[in-house]
């Protein structure tokens, strides 16, 4: 049951890898919260508040899938990404501008600057042999960063995860229910949390977060 059936001889697979960043100047990129005009909101903010919200927008997101038993996969990822994939459940690693989140025993989410995604994807495809998957999902999700002394209180209203510091140390990653939607929550600092949310739910979660953080005072950062 647990064995993976693979063809005896690997067929040559041709994959079209597209650079999703257009170099044309007249094509503009819009994040899932483009319509919320966070930049304008940021300019007329209250100066102080218990929660700060920032969209870490237009980053490169790569979903990596492969077996931890596949040495070529593990070594290839470590070589190309500059840091080994975290194999402990619910952990993440960060090196420079690249962060890797553990999603499941055979799935990771790599977040990196958008202009590196194409090169890294090509590098991974060149370095890895065997059964694996790399997908650029940059357009499908975005990251919202909550910070401030009351950020944890907002999370407590939104998710069933136990976000007490004893249960959720810095660097931990957990996918869970978030405001009737889902999010991949990562504690990136003492008072800083990152939510990876689906593009189609970004507006709903943005509205939810505004409401949930109203009592603490919400400061939009840009």
């Amino acid at each position: 049951m647990s064995e993976t059936l693979a063809p005896e001889k690997e067929a040559t697979v041709t994959v079209a890898v597209m650079n999703q960043l257009s170099t044309a100047k007249d094509v503009r990129a819009e994040s899932p919260l483009h319509h919320a005009e966070l930049d304008k909101l940021a300019s007329r903010n209250p100066r102080a508040g218990g929660v700060s919200l920032r969209e870490l927008k237009l980053l490169g997101h790569l979903t990596l899938r492969g077996s931890q038993q596949n040495q070529s996969f593990m070594n290839g990822c470590a070589e190309v990404l500059g840091v080994a994939l975290p194999t402990l459940p619910l952990t993440s690693v960060e090196k420079g501008s690249v962060s890797i989140r553990w999603v499941s025993p055979d799935e990771w989410l790599v977040v990196l600057p958008a202009d590196q995604a194409f090169e890294v994807e090509r590098g991974l495809r060149a370095a890895i042999e065997g059964h694996y998957q790399v997908v650029n999902v940059s357009g499908g999700q975005t990251i919202l960063e909550l910070s401030g002394p009351n950020a944890r209180d907002v999370l407590k209203k939104s998710t069933v995860l136990d976000v007490h510091p004893s249960q959720f140390p810095v660097g931990k990653v957990a996918g869970s229910v978030f405001a009737k939607s889902t999010a991949l929550v990562r504690r990136s600092g003492e008072d800083t949390w990152e939510l990876v949310v689906r593009r189609s739910f970004a507006d709903y979660i943005w509205l939810w977060l505004q409401d949930a953080s109203r009592e603490y005072g919400l400061v939009i950062k840009h």
Partner: peptide, 10 residues
């Protein structure tokens, strides 16, 4: 796989 207790909702 996550090696911890979670709510049924998940």
């Amino acid at each position: 796989h996550c090696c911890e207790l979670r709510e049924e909702e998940e």
